[in-house]
Design a protein around this nucleic acid. Structure first.
Lengths: 244, 244
DNA sequence: ATTTTTTGTTTCATTATACGAAACTTTGTT
DNA sequence: AACAAAGTTTCGTATAATGAAACAAAAAAT
């Protein structure tokens, strides 16, 4: 495995989580790297527009923006589904989200926000934990049981709020609920004030394991609303599956 | 400059323009690289999820998607402006676009599509030429004259359609038009059936040179419409400038 | 079915290049 | 002005990248 390439991406990854906060020396300290070596990496990556230096602090560069938008994951699934997310979001005035599973987490692929919710900072590209999101539980419900067992034993069931489920049997119960009812629920298990309703979206032909969800304030998602919204998601999921 | 890092990104860039078309051998031939060396690069980049192999053809990987969405170019300009693009797009039912200048081209930063236009393949992250787009001409009009001279002498005035302007004096005339009227026009100079109306967006405090535009069919952009839409863009530009 | 060709992968000696200590320059601080 | 810290350049050394060759696996041709 190519050492320098690996190191370059370690640097890029580290900066991606600390943009605008780190100078060369600080980076060297935190990554435990010799400053001359680091200097050369940063210089190279800056020339390539992969990284950007402003006021001697480092940011991700514009070339990563370009590359990121050319990623053609799973046959342009995002491009194909986006119009349908737009439609459902506008019609119901709800925020709708699309994720796909990669490396034992749910990758945030697309979202359309309702006018109701205030615009939050874009989280596309983020990895969501599987055990405390409705989308995660939806995905788990669409996986074969033995795979679920492996995943649950591998991932850390980190406690994010007082409602986060950290017990494997309890999670399995919830996964059974999704299998029976077709949708999953999550109430402030990841962050306070945020709830979700989700359904799995498994597209066999392209080996895509993902999910669709509505997200919003837990106060709005009362029983009656949950019935309506979960039915909408299930019918959207069906529609998408037919188009693939 | 770090050789291997540079080479890794050469490979990534080449694949980004030929996704799903190239096997290891084919890549080696086209890039003039030794297959053993290339093999090691591809292996490394695949492990890092920067590249992805499907049916022995190479694609950009999901990690680039994540990184690309974390690019925080120019103080989150996209996140801050997006809601206003949404508003104007919905109110007028027009497709609206945002670009910024990087490396002598207009980088496609954001867009909101109208329900009128059919959803086209996402072009965010693409580099648009300056000489045959309304956005390019708008940006050029906001730059100091000596810089414009340098840029016009450096960039290739490639002919895309029969309407593409390839003469520097003619381009300068059009730039003067933008300076006088505050907006720029482009009719099928880049691709047949596509016209644009644009205004410059120069945010001094963050050294951002960019532009806003409406795009659509040339048949719809008649004189009267041009007046209305250009006025809308100018007032949006003003509003944005005030918020920075 | 058999041979031939092409593609993908591993090994290994050579050499190029990445490395980091040290010196030096620039910038910021007391 | 003196000092400290950050950033940059130089250069000998060691390491890691390189690519030819051999090999394995998969396609293509006979």
């Amino acid at each position: 495995m190519s050492n320098s390439v690996k190191k370059a991406f370690e640097i890029i990854n580290y900066i991606s989580n600390n943009q605008g906060k780190l100078s060369l020396s600080e980076l060297g300290r935190q990554l435990g790297m010799n400053k001359t070596t680091l200097f050369r990496y940063l210089e190279t990556l800056e020339i390539l527009n992969i990284l950007e230096k402003r006021d001697s602090n480092w940011y991700l560069g514009i070339e990563l923006f370009s590359l990121g938008h050319k990623v053609d994951a799973n046959n342009r699934i995002v491009d194909r589904i986006h119009p349908q997310l737009e439609e459902i979001s506008q019609r119901l005035n709800e925020t709708v989200n699309l994720v796909g599973m990669y490396d034992n987490s749910a990758l945030y692929l697309d979202k359309v926000e309702s006018s109701r919710e205030l615009q939050m900072r874009s989280k596309l590209g983020d990895h969501l934990p599987l055990h405390c999101t409705s989308l995660g539980k939806a995905i788990l419900s669409s996986l074969p049981t033995d795979k679920v067992d492996v995943i649950l034993s591998v991932i850390e069931l980190k406690q994010y709020t007082e409602y986060t489920i950290t017990s494997i049997p309890e999670l399995k119960k919830q996964i059974e609920f999704v299998k029976t009812n077709g949708y999953s629920l999550e109430k402030e298990e990841l962050e306070p004030g945020l709830s979700c309703i989700a359904v799995p979206l498994y597209i066999k032909s392209i080996d895509f394991y993902g999910g669709l969800s509505f997200s919003g304030s837990p106060y709005r998602f009362i029983d009656e609303k949950v019935k309506e919204l979960s039915a909408e998601l299930m019918s959207l999921s069906d529609k998408i599956l037919k188009s693939f």
